[in-house]
Design a protein around this nucleic acid. Sequence first.
DNA 1: GTCTATACTGAGATAGAC
DNA 2: GTCTATCTCAGTATAGAC
Lengths: 210, 210
Amino acid sequence: MSPEAAEILESAAPAGGRMSAADRREQILIAATAVFGAKTYVGTTTDEVARAAGVSQPYVVRLFGTKEKLYIEVVQRAYDRLLDAFRASIPGPAEGREKRLGAAYTGLLAERGMLPVIAGSTAMGGEAEIGRVARAGFSALWQCIRTEAGFSAEETRTFFAIGMLINAVVGLRLTGDYGSEVNATEVLDECFPDAVEKFRGLLPTVDEPW
Amino acid sequence: MSPEAAEILESAAPAGGRMSAADRREQILIAATAVFGAKTYVGTTTDEVARAAGVSQPYVVRLFGTKEKLYIEVVQRAYDRLLDAFRASIPGPAEGREKRLGAAYTGLLAERGMLPVIAGSTAMGGEAEIGRVARAGFSALWQCIRTEAGFSAEETRTFFAIGMLINAVVGLRLTGDYGSEVNATEVLDECFPDAVEKFRGLLPTVDEPW
DNA sequence: GTCTATACTGAGATAGAC
DNA sequence: GTCTATCTCAGTATAGAC
């Protein structure tokens, strides 16, 4: 079981025992975020999610209906989470606001799979249901920055553009150590000079034993 | 068979007949780019690629070895293509250079699946082989803009950031018409006011009958 | 609330003919 | 150079017990 899932389990019920459906759902959503984040929607199996959460595969299906519905909940939850994080960073002096909001974004790196899930959802507009959720989520974030944080159209565009670039850096794993690969981290150094350390160890791994 | 594939076929051999392996490979790569672009790596079947190219599924495997190898060639080809497009846009007055390079990027929207493939590869750094190709491709683009086009580090970062934002807009299909969805195109309007028209009809469709 | 067993399907890959 | 037939496995989902 993943550490996060274990934590939830521990705090909510005696190990191995039964939990309230609500707690179990949350636990599975955490695990699913990590796995979907590491392996993309299509690349993830409900069985891996189940193993990561420490439950049986059929039970995941039982609880969420289908893999697609599970994913939709994961995406929705990720956007909600990010929106909360943004809102929490708005109050305070206007000068540091953009920096605080940026930090709120990269801060989510600590919640396994959160950023990769959002980044991934960004490529799924062609999917009917999922696309709707992703567009709505993205749109809500945009409105938040534009309206609640009071950024101009241009500032908002730049803010999101940098966010998408961070997604790419994270998705490409430009933060890792690829000894023989030319120019790999060089891009990151130029891109976000002070971020190299921050990212280390926080990226989801595809070959994790889920 | 897809229109593009049919074109190649026509120009190279009598319909339905045999082609040189080289031409057939190219034809399949074009089809594969469109399908991978619309459905992502894991979401694409070799059978769909085969049908889009007008050949049998086992033959696709025969020619490229595995689905992964096929995808790697597709990604490599996409990065090569974009690099060429960038290089072709560098000569000329320095003032219009950034605009020309940007246009070179969006211009690739006309080549089915090209941009979606690049955008998608950007999330696959966790995959050993594919990740290496994607990092190398991205890195090469970066070096091209930085060194050959002579952008400063900051200009380069901004240029790529906007490119990634375009990827998101395209991936989310913020260009489409989603009547009931709130704020969907509103984001695009603010983002790239003059681009709405440009994008129309150029986005890959997931439910195309491949 | 949760599991085991299993049915069903789809997809990658192989064999071998033409 | 290209196809048809087919093997094989993995993955979603269902049935039903505890």
